[in-house]
Amino acid sequence: MAAGGDHGSPDSYRSPLASRYASPEMCFVFSDRYKFRTWRQLWLWLAEAEQTLGLPITDEQIQEMKSNLENIDFKMAAEEEKRLRHDVMAHVHTFGHCCPKAAGIIHLGATSCYVGDNTDLIILRNALDLLLPKLARVISRLADFAKERASLPTLGFTHFQPAQLTTVGKRCCLWIQDLCMDLQNLKRVRDDLRFRGVKGTTGTQASFLQLFEGDDHKVEQLDKMVTEKAGFKRAFIITGQTYTRKVDIEVLSVLASLGASVHKICTDIRLLANLKEMEEPFEKQQIGSSAMPYKRNPMRSERCCSLARHLMTLVMDPLQTASVQWFERTLDDSANRRICLAEAFLTADTILNTLQNISEGLVVYPKVIERRIRQELPFMATENIIMAMVKAGGSRQDCHEKIRVLSQQAASVVKQEGGDNDLIERIQVDAYFSPIHSQLDHLLDPSSFTGRASQQVQRFLEEEVYPLLKPYESVMKVKAELCL
């Protein structure tokens, strides 16, 4: 049975990233139509530049190519590739079939990587351009969430054990800070992308030097003109047959890092959902379990974690691919890159769409948070109580021993009897502590235990987050809708 299948058929496997999760716009960027249309555009740009620099290419040939950029006979191309065992030459023939007058000058002087690699770089750039505003929107939604809850005390956790208090907004800023680093890295790697350009079979530009009869300047002009037509500021000066596969490492490393950030955020949300302090959106008709109707599973956060793990592992592909590119190139890269580049971007696209949807509907339960604080705060307040007693004339050592005994009794009630923490009640009825009984409410005010959390939130948002989001103001209103 021949390899390949009808990918629109229910009898043929289709990647869930495309069929179930990723956005239509990201799927289109990695589609065959987008790819092969870009090949034709690159052939047109090459012909236009070659004509401008004096090669015998007519206006009629150029116009014929322009008129057929979208006229792609995919069936013919597939048949040609089956016959020739070469995808680029299959599309040269297919393009030439609908451009008979231009057929002889299509791909003039070029090698397969002229269309293959340059198209990949265009796709990487455009895919990054799709991700950047999506990530900015996630940051914006979380920034709104953090600002609104900047002063809401909550129990902090280290080692997932109760620690000092923080605020809900401050905790959210930990998430935002990681995503801001990801946004900066995505922008950097996007701006650092260079075009492969017009380089020939081993990167020496020998074929173009021959076409222009040894004119170095025209060869350099050709490279520059096509690079500018493709919208790049610069091209690699040095290439082998391909652009260095280190570029793929750079791009997928940034995406993998984004995956790590999203995994951490969504894990926190899942843990908070278990504590009943916070939940992701839950639709009115949504079913959490087929057997347990009360369940409210954090399905979206779980999906993000599941896909983020996949995204983090994909960076190993370009690392290994770059390491086995012998001399000017081997074909070890080809099949692998067809999979890992598309999957990385479709996965990143999915987790950003999902995280935006989550961040637009996060639900906080202040009463649950308050109750958990009441359970733990008495123990945390013991040092403040000791200091207040010393100020009232008591002995630190005597007070410490009193607190120690009462704390152990209260802990026994919590752990052995399943009761509430009654340390404060014990202190309130103990005559030894009568000098500070009137101060206990103040000493137990949760806001006095959150330090500068709310001020940190305000400063972080104003100095770091809002300036970073400013270039994306025009796209901030787009909502994230999930079908599944």
Rank of each mutant, 00 (worst) to 15 (best):
A2M: 13
D6H: 00
H7I: 15
G8F: 14
S9W: 11
S12R: 15
S19H: 07
R20E: 04
S23Y: 15
F28A: 12
V29Q: 07
R33T: 07
R33S: 06
K35S: 03
R37T: 07
R40Q: 04
L42T: 07
W45Q: 09
W45Y: 07
W45M: 08
L46I: 14
E48V: 08
A49C: 09
A49W: 15
E50H: 15
T52G: 08
T52Q: 07
L53K: 00
I57D: 01
Q61W: 04
E64W: 08
K66E: 02
N68D: 09
E70V: 12
N71H: 05
I72T: 02
D73N: 03
F74T: 07
E80G: 11
E80C: 07
E80W: 04
E81I: 04
E81V: 01
K82W: 08
K82F: 13
R85L: 08
V88D: 01
F95Y: 05
F95D: 02
C98N: 08
K101A: 11
A103Y: 09
H107I: 07
L108W: 10
L121A: 09
I123S: 13
R125Y: 03
A127T: 05
L128S: 13
D129R: 05
L131W: 02
L135F: 07
A136G: 07
L142G: 03
K147M: 11
R149W: 12
A150R: 07
S151P: 15
S151E: 07
T154L: 09
L155T: 01
G156Q: 00
F157W: 09
H159A: 00
Q164T: 01
V168T: 06
C173I: 02
I176N: 06
M181K: 13
L186I: 14
R188T: 12
R188F: 15
D191M: 11
D192S: 09
V198R: 03
V198P: 08
T201A: 06
T201R: 01
T202W: 01
G203I: 01
F208K: 01
Q210H: 08
D215W: 09
H217R: 08
V219Y: 06
D223L: 05
A235C: 12
I237C: 14
T239C: 10
R245H: 00
V247N: 03
D248L: 07
E250R: 10
E250T: 09
V251C: 04
L252Q: 08
L252A: 14
V254S: 07
L255E: 01
S257A: 12
L258C: 08
C266A: 07
T267C: 10
A273P: 04
N274W: 04
K276Y: 11
F282D: 08
K284V: 09
Q285I: 13
Q285S: 13
Q286F: 00
I287T: 11
G288L: 01
S306Q: 00
A308S: 08
T313L: 10
L314T: 14
V315S: 09
V315Y: 08
L319V: 08
L319Y: 15
Q320P: 00
T321M: 13
A322N: 12
S323L: 01
V324C: 09
W326D: 02
L331T: 00
A335E: 01
N336H: 02
N336L: 13
R337G: 02
I339A: 04
C340L: 11
L341C: 14
E343T: 09
A344W: 00
F345I: 09
T350M: 05
T350K: 04
T350Q: 14
T354R: 02
N357T: 11
S359N: 06
S359C: 13
L362S: 08
K367P: 08
E370M: 08
R372I: 08
P378E: 07
E383Q: 00
E383N: 01
N384F: 03
I386S: 05
I386H: 13
K391H: 07
A392T: 04
A392L: 07
G394Q: 06
R396F: 04
C399N: 10
E401M: 06
I403K: 10
V405Q: 00
L406R: 07
Q409H: 07
A410E: 02
S412R: 11
S412D: 03
V414D: 01
V414N: 04
K415N: 07
G418I: 08
D420Q: 12
N421K: 03
N421A: 09
L423C: 03
I424K: 13
I427E: 02
V429F: 14
A431T: 13
H442N: 13
H442E: 09
L444D: 05
D445G: 08
P446Q: 02
S447H: 14
S448G: 13
F449M: 05
G451E: 07
R452T: 12
Q456P: 03
Q458T: 14
F460E: 07
L461Q: 14
Y466K: 14
L468D: 07
L468F: 07
